[in-house]
Protein backbone atom coordinates (compact mmCIF):
# COMPACT_ATOMS: atom_id res chain seq x y z
CA UNK A 1 0.00 0.00 0.00
CA UNK A 2 0.90 3.64 -0.46
CA UNK A 3 3.51 2.90 -3.12
CA UNK A 4 4.60 6.07 -4.94
CA UNK A 5 7.13 4.50 -7.29
CA UNK A 6 7.29 6.44 -10.54
CA UNK A 7 5.47 9.46 -9.10
CA UNK A 8 7.02 12.91 -8.81
CA UNK A 9 6.44 15.43 -6.05
CA UNK A 10 7.21 19.08 -5.45
CA UNK A 11 7.38 19.91 -1.75
CA UNK A 12 7.59 23.59 -0.86
CA UNK A 13 9.29 24.62 2.35
CA UNK A 14 11.34 21.43 2.36
CA UNK A 15 14.11 22.97 4.44
CA UNK A 16 11.77 23.20 7.43
CA UNK A 17 11.12 20.38 9.90
CA UNK A 18 7.73 19.33 8.55
CA UNK A 19 8.62 19.88 4.88
CA UNK A 20 11.80 17.83 5.14
CA UNK A 21 9.91 14.98 6.82
CA UNK A 22 7.26 15.07 4.08
CA UNK A 23 9.93 14.99 1.35
CA UNK A 24 11.71 12.09 3.04
CA UNK A 25 8.50 10.11 3.47
CA UNK A 26 7.39 10.59 -0.15
CA UNK A 27 10.90 9.68 -1.29
CA UNK A 28 10.95 6.58 0.92
CA UNK A 29 7.75 5.42 -0.81
CA UNK A 30 9.49 5.65 -4.17
CA UNK A 31 8.65 9.16 -5.38
CA UNK A 32 11.15 11.47 -7.05
CA UNK A 33 11.08 14.73 -5.13
CA UNK A 34 11.85 18.37 -5.89
CA UNK A 35 12.83 20.18 -2.72
CA UNK A 36 11.84 23.81 -2.59
CA UNK A 37 12.98 26.31 0.01
CA UNK A 38 15.04 29.44 0.43
CA UNK A 39 17.93 27.92 2.44
CA UNK A 40 19.87 26.33 -0.41
CA UNK A 41 22.53 24.73 1.81
CA UNK A 42 19.87 22.94 3.88
CA UNK A 43 18.13 21.74 0.69
CA UNK A 44 21.42 20.53 -0.81
CA UNK A 45 22.23 18.55 2.30
CA UNK A 46 18.74 17.00 2.38
CA UNK A 47 19.09 16.11 -1.31
CA UNK A 48 22.50 14.56 -0.61
CA UNK A 49 21.00 12.55 2.25
CA UNK A 50 18.22 11.26 0.00
CA UNK A 51 20.65 10.47 -2.82
CA UNK A 52 18.99 9.62 -6.10
CA UNK A 53 15.54 10.94 -7.02
CA UNK A 54 16.00 14.30 -5.23
CA UNK A 55 16.35 17.72 -6.85
CA UNK A 56 16.74 21.20 -5.40
CA UNK A 57 14.53 24.05 -6.64
CA UNK A 58 14.98 27.21 -4.55
CA UNK A 59 12.62 30.18 -4.90
CA UNK A 60 11.31 33.17 -3.00
CA UNK A 61 7.56 32.54 -2.72
CA UNK A 62 6.69 36.16 -1.96
CA UNK A 63 7.78 37.07 -5.51
CA UNK A 64 5.05 36.19 -8.07
CA UNK A 65 7.52 35.79 -10.94
CA UNK A 66 9.70 33.50 -8.84
CA UNK A 67 6.68 31.30 -8.06
CA UNK A 68 5.85 30.95 -11.77
CA UNK A 69 9.50 30.11 -12.41
CA UNK A 70 9.45 27.53 -9.60
CA UNK A 71 6.62 25.66 -11.32
CA UNK A 72 8.69 25.58 -14.52
CA UNK A 73 11.87 24.58 -12.68
CA UNK A 74 10.07 21.75 -10.90
CA UNK A 75 8.60 20.45 -14.17
CA UNK A 76 12.03 20.67 -15.79
CA UNK A 77 13.71 18.88 -12.88
CA UNK A 78 11.08 16.14 -12.53
CA UNK A 79 9.76 15.88 -16.08
CA UNK A 80 6.27 16.42 -14.68
CA UNK A 81 4.73 17.11 -11.27
CA UNK A 82 2.19 14.52 -10.09
CA UNK A 83 2.02 15.57 -6.45
CA UNK A 84 2.18 19.16 -5.22
CA UNK A 85 2.60 19.71 -1.49
CA UNK A 86 2.03 23.35 -0.57
CA UNK A 87 3.81 23.24 2.74
CA UNK A 88 5.86 26.45 2.85
CA UNK A 89 4.57 28.90 5.38
CA UNK A 90 5.66 31.58 7.74
CA UNK A 91 4.30 33.44 10.74
CA UNK A 92 4.43 37.11 11.64
CA UNK A 93 2.54 36.98 14.90
CA UNK A 94 1.26 40.01 16.71
CA UNK A 95 -2.05 41.31 17.98
CA UNK A 96 -4.16 42.97 15.32
CA UNK A 97 -3.70 46.42 16.84
CA UNK A 98 0.02 46.15 16.22
CA UNK A 99 -0.12 44.28 12.93
CA UNK A 100 1.34 46.15 9.98
CA UNK A 101 -0.01 45.81 6.46
CA UNK A 102 3.17 44.06 5.39
CA UNK A 103 2.85 41.51 8.22
CA UNK A 104 -0.55 40.64 6.83
CA UNK A 105 0.46 40.72 3.17
CA UNK A 106 3.66 38.68 3.43
CA UNK A 107 1.89 35.90 5.32
CA UNK A 108 -0.99 35.81 2.82
CA UNK A 109 1.42 35.94 -0.16
CA UNK A 110 3.61 33.06 0.99
CA UNK A 111 1.06 30.85 2.77
CA UNK A 112 -1.88 31.22 0.40
CA UNK A 113 -1.16 33.04 -2.86
CA UNK A 114 1.98 31.06 -3.70
CA UNK A 115 -0.04 27.86 -3.37
CA UNK A 116 -2.66 29.28 -5.70
CA UNK A 117 -0.05 30.18 -8.31
CA UNK A 118 1.70 26.81 -8.09
CA UNK A 119 -1.60 24.92 -8.25
CA UNK A 120 -2.71 26.94 -11.29
CA UNK A 121 0.53 26.24 -13.11
CA UNK A 122 0.81 22.55 -12.24
CA UNK A 123 -2.83 21.43 -12.39
CA UNK A 124 -2.67 21.87 -16.17
CA UNK A 125 -0.34 18.90 -16.61
CA UNK A 126 -2.26 16.88 -14.03
CA UNK A 127 -5.46 17.44 -16.01
CA UNK A 128 -3.82 16.28 -19.21
CA UNK A 129 -2.45 13.16 -17.53
CA UNK A 130 -5.69 12.51 -15.65
CA UNK A 131 -3.88 12.07 -12.34
CA UNK A 132 -2.82 14.48 -9.65
CA UNK A 133 -2.61 15.23 -5.97
CA UNK A 134 -2.57 18.72 -4.48
CA UNK A 135 -2.03 18.76 -0.74
CA UNK A 136 -2.06 21.91 1.37
CA UNK A 137 -0.45 21.93 4.78
CA UNK A 138 -2.80 24.16 6.70
CA UNK A 139 -3.07 24.40 10.48
CA UNK A 140 -5.44 23.70 13.33
CA UNK A 141 -5.58 27.46 13.88
CA UNK A 142 -7.10 27.90 10.41
CA UNK A 143 -10.16 26.25 11.91
CA UNK A 144 -10.00 27.24 15.59
CA UNK A 145 -8.31 30.65 15.35
CA UNK A 146 -5.57 31.79 17.69
CA UNK A 147 -4.93 35.21 19.23
CA UNK A 148 -1.95 36.98 17.69
CA UNK A 149 -2.36 35.16 14.40
CA UNK A 150 -5.14 36.85 12.42
CA UNK A 151 -2.90 36.82 9.35
CA UNK A 152 -1.71 33.23 9.76
CA UNK A 153 -5.17 31.90 10.68
CA UNK A 154 -6.72 33.71 7.70
CA UNK A 155 -4.11 32.26 5.33
CA UNK A 156 -4.66 28.74 6.65
CA UNK A 157 -8.46 29.00 6.58
CA UNK A 158 -8.10 30.42 3.07
CA UNK A 159 -6.17 27.36 2.00
CA UNK A 160 -9.00 25.10 3.19
CA UNK A 161 -11.62 27.04 1.18
CA UNK A 162 -9.31 27.17 -1.83
CA UNK A 163 -8.83 23.40 -1.69
CA UNK A 164 -12.55 22.67 -1.45
CA UNK A 165 -13.29 24.83 -4.50
CA UNK A 166 -10.43 23.43 -6.57
CA UNK A 167 -11.32 19.89 -5.53
CA UNK A 168 -14.73 20.36 -7.15
CA UNK A 169 -13.23 21.84 -10.32
CA UNK A 170 -10.86 18.97 -11.02
CA UNK A 171 -12.38 15.90 -9.37
CA UNK A 172 -13.57 14.56 -12.73
CA UNK A 173 -9.96 14.53 -13.92
CA UNK A 174 -8.85 12.14 -11.19
CA UNK A 175 -7.11 14.92 -9.28
CA UNK A 176 -7.67 15.19 -5.55
CA UNK A 177 -7.15 18.35 -3.52
CA UNK A 178 -6.92 18.02 0.23
CA UNK A 179 -5.50 19.71 3.28
CA UNK A 180 -3.67 18.36 6.27
CA UNK A 181 -3.93 20.41 9.43
CA UNK A 182 -1.14 19.84 11.94
CA UNK A 183 -1.66 20.71 15.58
CA UNK A 184 1.35 21.37 17.82
CA UNK A 185 4.37 19.79 16.20
CA UNK A 186 8.00 19.59 17.38
CA UNK A 187 9.89 21.86 14.99
CA UNK A 188 12.31 24.76 15.17
CA UNK A 189 9.23 26.89 15.86
CA UNK A 190 8.33 25.03 19.04
CA UNK A 191 11.95 24.24 20.08
CA UNK A 192 12.30 27.79 21.32
CA UNK A 193 9.59 27.22 23.92
CA UNK A 194 10.59 26.50 27.53
CA UNK A 195 9.93 23.08 29.08
CA UNK A 196 7.20 24.65 31.20
CA UNK A 197 5.52 26.07 28.10
CA UNK A 198 5.76 22.71 26.35
CA UNK A 199 4.26 20.94 29.36
CA UNK A 200 1.40 23.41 29.50
CA UNK A 201 0.79 22.81 25.83
CA UNK A 202 0.91 19.04 26.12
CA UNK A 203 -1.63 19.31 28.92
CA UNK A 204 -4.14 20.59 26.39
CA UNK A 205 -3.45 17.71 24.00
CA UNK A 206 -5.31 14.47 24.81
CA UNK A 207 -2.42 12.44 23.37
CA UNK A 208 -0.21 14.08 26.01
CA UNK A 209 2.63 15.02 23.69
CA UNK A 210 3.53 17.30 20.81
CA UNK A 211 3.34 15.72 17.38
CA UNK A 212 6.39 14.89 15.30
CA UNK A 213 7.08 15.89 11.69
CA UNK A 214 6.79 12.17 10.94
CA UNK A 215 3.18 12.19 12.16
CA UNK A 216 2.43 14.84 9.52
CA UNK A 217 4.44 13.15 6.78
CA UNK A 218 2.50 9.89 7.24
CA UNK A 219 -0.75 11.74 6.58
CA UNK A 220 0.69 13.34 3.45
CA UNK A 221 1.83 9.97 2.12
CA UNK A 222 -1.72 8.70 2.57
CA UNK A 223 -3.32 11.68 0.79
CA UNK A 224 -0.76 11.39 -2.03
CA UNK A 225 -1.36 7.68 -2.52
CA UNK A 226 -3.41 5.89 -5.14
CA UNK A 227 -5.42 4.42 -2.27
CA UNK A 228 -6.71 7.87 -1.24
CA UNK A 229 -8.10 8.56 -4.72
CA UNK A 230 -11.69 8.86 -3.45
CA UNK A 231 -10.78 11.38 -0.74
CA UNK A 232 -11.03 14.97 -1.96
CA UNK A 233 -11.86 18.40 -0.57
CA UNK A 234 -11.10 17.16 2.93
CA UNK A 235 -8.96 18.38 5.78
CA UNK A 236 -7.15 15.69 7.73
CA UNK A 237 -6.50 16.90 11.27
CA UNK A 238 -3.32 15.50 12.80
CA UNK A 239 -3.20 17.02 16.26
CA UNK A 240 -3.26 14.38 18.99
CA UNK A 241 -6.87 15.26 19.65
CA UNK A 242 -6.27 18.88 20.67
CA UNK A 243 -9.17 19.94 18.44
CA UNK A 244 -11.78 17.48 17.23
CA UNK A 245 -13.50 19.00 14.24
Amino acid sequence: MFDLTGKTALVTGASGGIGAAIAKALHARGATVALHGTKVAALESLAAELGERAKVVPANLSDPAAVEQLAKDAEAALGQVDILVNNAGLTKDTLILRMKDEDWQTVLDVNLTAGFRLSRALVKGMMKRRWGRIIGITSVVGVTGNPGQVNYAASKAGMIGFSKALAQEVASRNITVNCLAPGMIQTAMTDVLTDAQKEAMSGRIPAGRLGTPGDIAAGVVYLASEEAGYVTGQTLHVNGGMAMI
Partner: peptide
Protein backbone atom coordinates in the same frame (compact mmCIF):
# COMPACT_ATOMS: atom_id res chain seq x y z
CA UNK B 1 -18.41 18.62 -23.08
CA UNK B 2 -18.55 20.15 -19.61
CA UNK B 3 -17.14 23.56 -18.69
CA UNK B 4 -13.79 22.07 -17.79
CA UNK B 5 -13.62 20.30 -21.16
CA UNK B 6 -14.12 23.61 -22.95
CA UNK B 7 -11.22 25.15 -21.00
CA UNK B 8 -9.07 22.16 -21.82
CA UNK B 9 -10.01 22.39 -25.50
CA UNK B 10 -9.01 26.04 -25.59
CA UNK B 11 -5.72 25.13 -23.94
Amino acid sequence: ADSLDTVELVM
